[in-house]
Each structure stands twice: as C-alpha cells, then as structure tokens.
C-alpha cells in the first residue's frame, strides 16, 4: 500500500512538473542565448492566462463581441503574451549593450524586466482585481485508471505536448538557419555581428519563443486546473527558476529534467513532511546546486560567467 501511494505521488509529481517545463525552457532560453535573467516570464505566463480568461468571460473589449470560445480565447491569450514579450525586448534587451563603467551595469536588463513584471502584474490587477477566476473547459474529471493508479488525461497530454514543444525547439536550434544564428549569438554577440548576423533582427525570435512558451504553459494550466489568477505566475515562476538551475542554465533538455525533478521533490516532500515543506526542499536543492555545482545537471560552463 505504502509503495503504491508513493508511486501515485511520483506520477502526480511528474504531472505537476509538466507545467513547469515550458516556463523553465523559457527562462533557460533567455539566459542561455542572451545571458539575460528575464523576470518578466512569470508575468507573461499570468498575462496569457488572464487575457484568455477575460476573453472567454467578457468577450472582446469595448463590447465588440460576446464571450469567446475557450480554445480561441486561449489562442488569443498566447498571441498577446508574444506581443507583450516583444514589447519587453524593445525596452530591455536593446539597452543591454549600454556601458557606463559600472560593475552593476550587467543588471540593467534584469532590473528593467523586474519593472515590466510590476507593470504587467498590476495592469491585470487594476483591470480584473485579485480574485482567482474559474476557467471552464469541457474537460473535467477525465481520469485514466491504470492498475489502480490515477492519471489525469489532460495532464498526460500536457506532459507529452511540453516534451514535443521542447523537441521542436531543439530541432529549431540545431538544424535551422535561425537556430544557428541564435547559437552564434549565444557564443559571442560581437563575433556573430562580424559574421553577418543581424543581431537586432534575430534576437526578437527568442522573445517570440519565450512569449509562446509562457502562453502555452498558462493555457495548459488553465485547462488542467480550471482556474486562473493574477498571482498564478509567482508560484510557477519561482519553481521554473529552480527547475532551470537544476537542469543547468542554458540547457533546453536540462529544463525538462529540472521541471520533472522539481515537481517530484515538491509532491514527495508534501507527502512525507507536510504541505509547506516543499518550499524548503526545492530551494535548498537549488542553493546547494548553485553553490557547489552551478552548471546544474546538463549546463554549459560558460553561461552566466561572461558579462554577468
């Protein structure tokens, strides 16, 4: 009985981890390619979810339409997250190269992304208040019982979907021309410019990917848990940062492993030590890794060492 319960917790943990995967990949892309700890990611995630909710609840603004079907609302939400992410690119990364001879100058994009985090979060709070909103989709209680274990089908699909997205992403990074340009920028932006890569035109691709990943992850969350809230990004964001560090900064496949490990350690420590112990477990794991093995499980040595 004990082992079956633990096994069930392991399944739950993997399912929970699937939510963290896409967000962790978004973090790891920003830091791996641009050397930029992008704190707007939790806000973009929340933004996509809340825009989706408001469209499916109220419809388009200014009374242009009635409530929109849930899947289309989420689709528009994802696109809004992509647009918001491009806005962030315009006002943070473009100013990355400014120099004023100061050791904290590397913190400029980090600080302005914190500014954007506040802007998005409080825009939504001003518009919709701080309540948790129910998001209704046709999928409720779709559980699959295998040999006595309960597996939620939407969660299983989201896990597979997250892994497929990451696979597509790593195909993009390895095989395509854009991906090669991105990897060149990750290696050295100045050398990439000399090699004829138009850095200012390629970099927005990263931000489009970030917005897309956040939007997809928020949609998966809304479908699985049937709720969205202006604070949904905080929890997922901090867990995704932990997942990124565990997987290794800049490693896309590491982010998957990290997301699953974080989900697992969260549910298992809740099961063994009670509800609020998850915070201590996850963050102690992260602290130990950062101090003793900063490259994480699959990370690259060079990331986070140069300008930052």
């Amino acid at each position: 009985m004990f082992f079956e319960q633990v096994l069930q917790q392991i399944i739950n943990g993997l399912m929970l981890g699937s939510i963290y995967i896409s967000v962790a990949v978004a973090f790891t892309l920003a830091i791996g390619i641009l050397n930029f700890l992008n704190f707007t990611i939790p806000a973009l995630y929340m933004f996509a979810g809340m825009v989706g909710w408001s469209l499916s609840h109220y419809g388009l603004p200014f009374g242009l339409s009635g409530p929109i079907k849930w899947w289309f609302a989420l689709f528009i939400g994802i696109n809004c997250a992509i647009l918001a992410s491009l806005l962030v690119e315009r006002f943070t990364y473009r100013y990355f190269k400014m120099k004023h001879g100061d050791a904290t100058e590397h913190a400029i994009p980090l600080v302005s992304s914190l500014g954007f985090l506040l802007i998005f979060e409080y825009l939504i709070l001003i518009a919709h208040g701080s309540d948790t909103r129910g998001f209704s989709t046709p999928f409720t209680n779709l559980d699959w019982r295998v040999a006595g274990f309960i597996i939620s089908i939407p969660q299983l699909i989201s896990l597979i979907l997250s892994i497929l997205i990451v696979a597509a992403l790593s195909y993009l990074l390895i095989r395509t021309k854009v991906g090669r340009a991105l990897r060149a920028i990750a290696e050295n932006p100045d050398a990439a410019t000399l090699m004829g890569i138009d850095v200012d035109r390629i970099v927005p691709v990263v931000f489009i990917l970030i917005g897309f990943l956040c939007g997809v992850s928020a949609s998966i969350f809304a479908i699985n848990y049937h709720e969205v809230s202006p604070y949904m990004g905080d929890h997922v964001g901090t867990k995704a940062i932990a997942a990124m560090v565990i997987g290794g900064l800049g490693s896309v496949w590491g982010a998957i492993a990290g997301g699953l490990i974080v989900g697992l350690s969260e549910t298992l420590s809740i099961y063994f030590f009670g509800a609020s112990s998850a915070q201590i477990t996850v963050w102690s794991l992260l602290l130990l890794l950062v101090v003793f093995k900063p490259t994480g499980l699959f990370g690259h040595n060079a990331i986070g060492k140069g300008k930052f």
């Binding site: 830091i31 050397n35 700890l37 590397h106 980090l110 901090t238 940062i241 932990a242 560090v245 900064l249 915070q279 201590i280 963050w283 102690s284 992260l286 602290l287 950062v290 101090v291 900063p294 986070g304 060492k305 930052f308």
Partner: peptide, 16 residues
C-alpha cells in the same frame, strides 16, 4: 558564486 548565480543563491536563501 557570481553575478546571476549570486542573485539566484540569495533569492533561494530568502525562500528557505
């Protein structure tokens, strides 16, 4: 740790 790793480490300490 340095730079972004220090930011993450101190953030983790506050959470712990």
């Amino acid at each position: 740790t340095k730079g972004v790793y220090m930011v993450l480490a101190t953030f983790a300490i506050a959470e712990i």
